[in-house]
Computed example of a mutant assay.
Amino acid sequence: MKFIDETTIIVQSGDGGRGCVSFRRERFVPKGGPDGGDGGKGGDVLLKAAPNKRTLYHLQFKKEYKAPSGGHGQGSQRSGRGGEDLIIPVPVGTAIFDAETGDLLYDLVDPDRTVVVARGGRGGQGNAKFKSATHRTPRFAQPGEAGQRLTLKLELKSIADVGIIGLPNAGKSTLISAISSARPKIADYPFTTLTPNLGVVASHQGEPFVVADIPGLIEGAHEGAGLGIRFLRHVERTSMLVHMIDASTLTPDDPLKSYRMVNHELAMYSDALARKPQLVVLNKIDLAGTDQLADPFCQALPGSKILRISAATHKGLDALKQHIRRQLDALDETQ
Protein backbone atom coordinates (compact mmCIF):
# COMPACT_ATOMS: atom_id res chain seq x y z
CA MET A 1 0.00 0.00 0.00
CA LYS A 2 1.36 3.41 -0.95
CA PHE A 3 2.08 5.91 1.81
CA ILE A 4 -0.22 8.84 1.07
CA ASP A 5 1.46 11.96 2.43
CA GLU A 6 -0.09 14.53 0.10
CA THR A 7 -3.31 14.96 -1.81
CA THR A 8 -5.47 17.66 -3.39
CA ILE A 9 -9.16 18.13 -2.64
CA ILE A 10 -11.88 20.59 -3.62
CA VAL A 11 -14.08 21.98 -0.85
CA GLN A 12 -17.24 24.03 -1.20
CA SER A 13 -19.25 25.57 1.60
CA GLY A 14 -23.03 25.71 1.45
CA ASP A 15 -24.96 28.50 -0.23
CA GLY A 16 -27.11 30.75 1.91
CA GLY A 17 -30.87 30.31 1.58
CA ARG A 18 -32.89 33.06 -0.10
CA GLY A 19 -35.17 35.36 1.84
CA CYS A 20 -38.93 35.03 1.44
CA VAL A 21 -41.43 37.52 0.01
CA SER A 22 -44.68 37.01 1.91
CA PHE A 23 -47.58 39.00 3.37
CA ARG A 24 -49.96 38.24 6.19
CA ARG A 25 -53.22 36.79 4.92
CA GLU A 26 -55.23 36.49 8.12
CA ARG A 27 -58.95 36.94 8.52
CA PHE A 28 -60.00 40.26 9.96
CA VAL A 29 -56.58 41.76 9.15
CA PRO A 30 -57.38 43.64 5.93
CA LYS A 31 -53.95 45.20 5.52
CA GLY A 32 -51.55 42.50 6.62
CA GLY A 33 -47.93 43.55 6.42
CA PRO A 34 -44.87 41.74 5.05
CA ASP A 35 -43.85 38.62 6.99
CA GLY A 36 -41.23 36.93 4.82
CA GLY A 37 -38.51 35.16 6.85
CA ASP A 38 -34.75 35.08 6.32
CA GLY A 39 -32.81 32.36 4.56
CA GLY A 40 -30.52 30.10 6.59
CA LYS A 41 -26.73 30.31 6.54
CA GLY A 42 -24.87 27.75 4.45
CA GLY A 43 -22.74 25.15 6.20
CA ASP A 44 -19.02 25.71 6.73
CA VAL A 45 -16.30 23.26 5.66
CA LEU A 46 -13.85 22.55 8.45
CA LEU A 47 -10.69 20.44 8.70
CA LYS A 48 -9.93 18.80 12.02
CA ALA A 49 -6.63 17.34 13.23
CA ALA A 50 -7.79 13.88 14.30
CA PRO A 51 -5.32 11.76 16.34
CA ASN A 52 -6.85 8.54 14.99
CA LYS A 53 -6.00 9.45 11.39
CA ARG A 54 -2.43 8.60 10.44
CA THR A 55 -2.31 9.06 6.68
CA LEU A 56 -4.24 10.94 3.99
CA TYR A 57 -5.24 7.58 2.54
CA HIS A 58 -8.95 8.12 3.27
CA LEU A 59 -9.03 11.25 1.08
CA GLN A 60 -7.62 9.76 -2.11
CA PHE A 61 -10.91 8.19 -3.22
CA LYS A 62 -13.13 11.27 -2.90
CA LYS A 63 -11.85 14.58 -4.20
CA GLU A 64 -14.82 16.95 -3.76
CA TYR A 65 -16.53 17.87 -0.47
CA LYS A 66 -19.60 20.12 -0.23
CA ALA A 67 -21.40 21.32 2.87
CA PRO A 68 -25.24 21.56 2.79
CA SER A 69 -26.86 24.84 1.79
CA GLY A 70 -29.12 26.85 4.06
CA GLY A 71 -32.89 26.53 3.84
CA HIS A 72 -35.02 29.26 2.27
CA GLY A 73 -37.05 31.66 4.37
CA GLN A 74 -40.81 31.15 4.71
CA GLY A 75 -43.90 33.14 5.56
CA SER A 76 -44.89 34.10 9.10
CA GLN A 77 -41.28 35.28 9.53
CA ARG A 78 -39.98 31.74 9.70
CA SER A 79 -36.26 31.57 8.99
CA GLY A 80 -34.72 28.84 6.90
CA ARG A 81 -32.68 26.16 8.64
CA GLY A 82 -28.90 26.65 8.65
CA GLY A 83 -26.84 24.13 6.68
CA GLU A 84 -24.85 21.66 8.78
CA ASP A 85 -21.11 22.11 8.91
CA LEU A 86 -18.97 19.52 7.15
CA ILE A 87 -15.97 18.38 9.20
CA ILE A 88 -13.18 16.54 7.35
CA PRO A 89 -10.71 14.69 9.62
CA VAL A 90 -7.02 14.78 8.70
CA PRO A 91 -3.91 13.52 10.53
CA VAL A 92 -2.16 15.68 13.08
CA GLY A 93 0.72 17.41 11.29
CA THR A 94 -1.22 18.18 8.11
CA ALA A 95 -0.31 21.45 6.38
CA ILE A 96 -3.08 23.06 4.32
CA PHE A 97 -2.15 25.07 1.25
CA ASP A 98 -4.14 27.04 -1.30
CA ALA A 99 -3.45 24.91 -4.37
CA GLU A 100 -3.71 27.87 -6.74
CA THR A 101 -1.41 30.33 -4.93
CA GLY A 102 0.74 27.93 -2.92
CA ASP A 103 0.08 29.95 0.24
CA LEU A 104 0.13 28.08 3.56
CA LEU A 105 -3.29 28.55 5.14
CA TYR A 106 -3.05 26.42 8.27
CA ASP A 107 -0.66 23.95 9.90
CA LEU A 108 -2.55 21.49 12.10
CA VAL A 109 0.16 20.50 14.56
CA ASP A 110 -2.12 20.27 17.63
CA PRO A 111 -4.51 17.33 18.13
CA ASP A 112 -8.21 18.20 17.72
CA ARG A 113 -7.53 21.66 16.33
CA THR A 114 -10.30 22.59 13.92
CA VAL A 115 -10.14 25.32 11.27
CA VAL A 116 -12.73 26.72 8.89
CA VAL A 117 -11.38 26.50 5.35
CA ALA A 118 -14.56 27.60 3.53
CA ARG A 119 -17.30 29.69 5.16
CA GLY A 120 -20.93 29.14 4.28
CA GLY A 121 -22.85 31.85 2.46
CA ARG A 122 -25.00 34.26 4.47
CA GLY A 123 -28.74 33.77 4.21
CA GLY A 124 -30.78 36.46 2.43
CA GLN A 125 -33.14 38.68 4.38
CA GLY A 126 -36.89 38.30 3.91
CA ASN A 127 -39.16 41.20 2.96
CA ALA A 128 -40.22 41.69 6.60
CA LYS A 129 -36.78 43.22 7.21
CA PHE A 130 -37.32 45.90 4.57
CA LYS A 131 -40.57 47.34 5.94
CA SER A 132 -40.33 51.04 6.80
CA ALA A 133 -42.55 54.03 7.37
CA THR A 134 -42.18 55.02 3.74
CA HIS A 135 -42.20 51.52 2.27
CA ARG A 136 -44.82 49.43 3.99
CA THR A 137 -45.23 46.69 1.40
CA PRO A 138 -41.77 45.69 0.11
CA ARG A 139 -42.15 43.06 -2.58
CA PHE A 140 -38.57 41.94 -2.67
CA ALA A 141 -36.13 39.92 -0.57
CA GLN A 142 -32.43 39.18 -0.72
CA PRO A 143 -30.96 36.11 -2.40
CA GLY A 144 -28.58 34.05 -0.33
CA GLU A 145 -24.84 34.46 -0.75
CA ALA A 146 -22.97 31.75 -2.63
CA GLY A 147 -20.63 29.50 -0.68
CA GLN A 148 -16.86 29.47 -1.14
CA ARG A 149 -15.14 26.96 -3.43
CA LEU A 150 -11.44 26.27 -2.92
CA THR A 151 -8.88 23.78 -4.13
CA LEU A 152 -6.65 22.72 -1.24
CA LYS A 153 -3.37 20.86 -1.24
CA LEU A 154 -2.80 18.81 1.90
CA GLU A 155 0.68 17.69 2.97
CA LEU A 156 1.31 15.38 5.90
CA LYS A 157 4.49 16.46 7.64
CA SER A 158 4.45 14.28 10.74
CA ILE A 159 7.05 11.53 10.44
CA ALA A 160 5.45 8.36 11.82
CA ASP A 161 3.39 6.69 14.51
CA VAL A 162 6.07 4.12 15.29
CA GLY A 163 9.83 4.64 15.40
CA ILE A 164 12.01 1.56 15.04
CA ILE A 165 15.17 2.18 17.07
CA GLY A 166 18.28 0.19 17.89
CA LEU A 167 21.98 -0.15 17.17
CA PRO A 168 23.25 -0.16 13.59
CA ASN A 169 22.58 -3.46 11.78
CA ALA A 170 19.86 -4.55 14.20
CA GLY A 171 17.66 -5.23 11.16
CA LYS A 172 15.43 -2.14 11.23
CA SER A 173 15.45 -1.59 7.47
CA THR A 174 14.81 -5.27 6.83
CA LEU A 175 11.82 -5.12 9.17
CA ILE A 176 10.26 -2.07 7.54
CA SER A 177 10.67 -3.64 4.09
CA ALA A 178 9.00 -6.82 5.37
CA ILE A 179 5.93 -5.20 6.95
CA SER A 180 5.34 -2.33 4.52
CA SER A 181 5.79 -1.30 0.91
CA ALA A 182 8.91 0.74 1.74
CA ARG A 183 12.12 -0.43 0.06
CA PRO A 184 15.02 1.07 2.02
CA LYS A 185 18.65 0.39 1.19
CA ILE A 186 19.86 -2.67 3.10
CA ALA A 187 23.50 -3.68 3.60
CA ASP A 188 25.72 -5.30 6.23
CA TYR A 189 27.73 -2.24 7.23
CA PRO A 190 26.91 0.42 9.86
CA PHE A 191 24.80 3.45 8.97
CA THR A 192 23.27 1.97 5.84
CA THR A 193 20.24 4.11 6.70
CA LEU A 194 21.17 7.78 6.39
CA THR A 195 17.64 9.20 6.53
CA PRO A 196 14.48 7.87 8.21
CA ASN A 197 12.59 5.53 5.88
CA LEU A 198 8.81 5.70 6.08
CA GLY A 199 6.45 2.84 5.38
CA VAL A 200 2.71 2.39 5.82
CA VAL A 201 1.60 -0.88 7.38
CA ALA A 202 -1.80 -2.20 6.34
CA SER A 203 -3.96 -3.44 9.18
CA HIS A 204 -7.05 -5.63 9.01
CA GLN A 205 -8.17 -4.30 12.41
CA GLY A 206 -8.09 -0.56 11.73
CA GLU A 207 -6.55 2.27 9.76
CA PRO A 208 -3.02 1.81 8.39
CA PHE A 209 -0.22 3.11 10.58
CA VAL A 210 3.09 4.67 9.61
CA VAL A 211 6.47 3.28 10.74
CA ALA A 212 9.94 4.75 10.38
CA ASP A 213 13.27 2.99 10.71
CA ILE A 214 15.42 5.52 12.53
CA PRO A 215 19.13 5.47 11.63
CA GLY A 216 21.13 3.43 14.14
CA LEU A 217 21.88 5.01 17.51
CA ILE A 218 25.33 4.65 19.02
CA GLU A 219 26.89 5.69 22.29
CA GLY A 220 27.05 9.49 22.47
CA ALA A 221 24.18 9.99 20.03
CA HIS A 222 22.58 12.59 22.35
CA GLU A 223 25.75 14.69 21.90
CA GLY A 224 25.73 14.29 18.13
CA ALA A 225 27.83 11.14 17.73
CA GLY A 226 27.09 9.06 14.66
CA LEU A 227 23.91 10.44 13.13
CA GLY A 228 23.13 12.02 16.49
CA ILE A 229 20.60 14.59 17.56
CA ARG A 230 19.23 15.10 14.06
CA PHE A 231 17.40 11.77 14.20
CA LEU A 232 16.61 11.77 17.91
CA ARG A 233 14.34 14.70 17.03
CA HIS A 234 12.49 12.44 14.61
CA VAL A 235 12.11 9.76 17.28
CA GLU A 236 10.60 12.37 19.59
CA ARG A 237 7.71 12.92 17.16
CA THR A 238 6.54 9.30 17.13
CA SER A 239 3.77 7.85 19.32
CA MET A 240 5.65 4.72 20.36
CA LEU A 241 8.96 2.94 19.82
CA VAL A 242 9.89 -0.54 18.68
CA HIS A 243 13.26 -1.22 20.26
CA MET A 244 14.94 -3.76 18.00
CA ILE A 245 17.91 -5.79 19.20
CA ASP A 246 20.04 -8.22 17.20
CA ALA A 247 19.66 -11.41 19.22
CA SER A 248 22.81 -12.90 17.72
CA THR A 249 24.94 -10.21 19.42
CA LEU A 250 23.65 -10.81 22.96
CA THR A 251 26.18 -11.96 25.54
CA PRO A 252 25.24 -14.19 28.51
CA ASP A 253 27.32 -12.18 30.98
CA ASP A 254 25.61 -8.86 30.15
CA PRO A 255 22.55 -9.50 27.96
CA LEU A 256 21.09 -6.00 28.51
CA LYS A 257 24.18 -4.05 27.45
CA SER A 258 22.89 -2.74 24.10
CA TYR A 259 19.37 -2.28 25.50
CA ARG A 260 20.65 -0.08 28.33
CA MET A 261 22.93 1.92 26.06
CA VAL A 262 20.18 2.88 23.61
CA ASN A 263 17.79 3.79 26.41
CA HIS A 264 20.51 5.85 28.08
CA GLU A 265 20.90 7.89 24.90
CA LEU A 266 17.15 8.47 24.77
CA ALA A 267 17.05 9.59 28.41
CA MET A 268 20.05 11.91 28.03
CA TYR A 269 18.34 13.60 25.12
CA SER A 270 14.85 13.97 26.62
CA ASP A 271 12.90 12.74 29.64
CA ALA A 272 9.78 12.64 27.50
CA LEU A 273 11.59 10.45 24.98
CA ALA A 274 12.68 8.07 27.73
CA ARG A 275 9.08 7.71 28.89
CA LYS A 276 7.74 6.96 25.42
CA PRO A 277 6.07 3.51 25.20
CA GLN A 278 8.42 0.80 23.94
CA LEU A 279 7.92 -2.65 22.52
CA VAL A 280 11.11 -4.71 22.76
CA VAL A 281 11.81 -7.00 19.81
CA LEU A 282 14.62 -9.55 19.51
CA ASN A 283 15.46 -9.95 15.82
CA LYS A 284 17.38 -12.58 13.81
CA ILE A 285 15.91 -15.37 15.91
CA ASP A 286 16.26 -17.63 12.86
CA LEU A 287 20.04 -17.82 13.34
CA ALA A 288 21.48 -20.84 15.13
CA GLY A 289 21.84 -20.40 18.89
CA THR A 290 19.88 -17.14 19.15
CA ASP A 291 17.05 -18.67 21.16
CA GLN A 292 19.54 -19.68 23.85
CA LEU A 293 21.03 -16.17 23.85
CA ALA A 294 17.55 -14.61 24.04
CA ASP A 295 16.54 -16.51 27.20
CA PRO A 296 18.89 -14.61 29.60
CA PHE A 297 17.76 -11.30 28.06
CA CYS A 298 14.10 -12.08 28.73
CA GLN A 299 14.90 -13.26 32.26
CA ALA A 300 16.70 -9.98 32.95
CA LEU A 301 13.51 -8.02 32.08
CA PRO A 302 10.81 -9.87 34.04
CA GLY A 303 7.29 -8.68 33.34
CA SER A 304 8.20 -7.00 30.06
CA LYS A 305 6.57 -7.97 26.79
CA ILE A 306 9.38 -9.14 24.51
CA LEU A 307 8.75 -10.48 21.03
CA ARG A 308 11.10 -12.81 19.14
CA ILE A 309 11.05 -12.33 15.37
CA SER A 310 13.01 -12.84 12.21
CA ALA A 311 12.58 -9.93 9.83
CA ALA A 312 14.45 -11.89 7.16
CA THR A 313 12.17 -14.96 7.28
CA HIS A 314 9.04 -13.06 8.43
CA LYS A 315 8.72 -15.21 11.54
CA GLY A 316 6.60 -13.50 14.22
CA LEU A 317 5.78 -10.43 12.09
CA ASP A 318 1.99 -10.91 12.26
CA ALA A 319 2.15 -10.95 16.05
CA LEU A 320 4.35 -7.85 16.00
CA LYS A 321 1.90 -5.90 13.85
CA GLN A 322 -0.99 -6.94 16.09
CA HIS A 323 0.85 -5.76 19.22
CA ILE A 324 1.67 -2.42 17.60
CA ARG A 325 -1.92 -1.99 16.48
CA ARG A 326 -3.27 -2.66 19.98
CA GLN A 327 -0.79 -0.31 21.61
CA LEU A 328 -1.57 2.52 19.18
CA ASP A 329 -5.30 2.04 19.81
CA ALA A 330 -4.70 2.19 23.55
CA LEU A 331 -2.73 5.41 23.16
CA ASP A 332 -5.53 6.92 21.07
CA GLU A 333 -8.02 6.21 23.87
CA THR A 334 -5.88 8.04 26.45
CA GLN A 335 -5.52 11.20 24.36
Results as ranks from 00 to 15, higher is better:
residue 90 V to A: 05
residue 112 D to G: 04
residue 281 V to P: 00
residue 230 R to M: 12
residue 264 H to D: 15
residue 95 A to C: 11
residue 129 K to A: 15
residue 161 D to C: 01
residue 264 H to S: 13
residue 318 D to Q: 12
residue 21 V to W: 09
residue 271 D to M: 11
residue 109 V to S: 08
residue 24 R to P: 00
residue 162 V to H: 02
residue 314 H to L: 08
residue 235 V to T: 13
residue 82 G to I: 07
residue 144 G to H: 00
residue 163 G to M: 01
residue 209 F to E: 01
residue 311 A to D: 02
residue 137 T to E: 13
residue 332 D to Q: 10
residue 290 T to H: 04
residue 244 M to A: 05
residue 189 Y to C: 05
residue 331 L to T: 01
residue 313 T to D: 11
residue 301 L to K: 09
residue 93 G to T: 03
residue 213 D to K: 07
residue 94 T to Q: 05
residue 238 T to S: 04
residue 132 S to V: 06
residue 101 T to C: 10
residue 19 G to K: 06
residue 133 A to P: 02
residue 75 G to I: 11
residue 206 G to C: 10
residue 47 L to A: 09
residue 308 R to I: 01
residue 239 S to V: 00
residue 228 G to C: 05
residue 240 M to Y: 06
residue 335 Q to M: 15
residue 212 A to I: 02
residue 66 K to G: 00
residue 236 E to R: 14
residue 226 G to M: 06
residue 108 L to M: 00
residue 23 F to L: 08
residue 56 L to T: 11
residue 262 V to S: 06
residue 125 Q to W: 09
residue 118 A to K: 03
residue 246 D to G: 10
residue 2 K to P: 13
residue 16 G to S: 06
residue 261 M to T: 13
residue 269 Y to G: 03
residue 54 R to P: 02
residue 194 L to D: 06
residue 302 P to T: 10
residue 160 A to H: 03
residue 14 G to Q: 02
residue 188 D to W: 11
residue 166 G to L: 07
residue 107 D to I: 00
residue 327 Q to M: 11
residue 149 R to M: 14
residue 60 Q to E: 14
residue 190 P to I: 08
residue 17 G to C: 08
residue 290 T to Q: 05
residue 229 I to A: 08
residue 311 A to K: 04
residue 223 E to H: 15
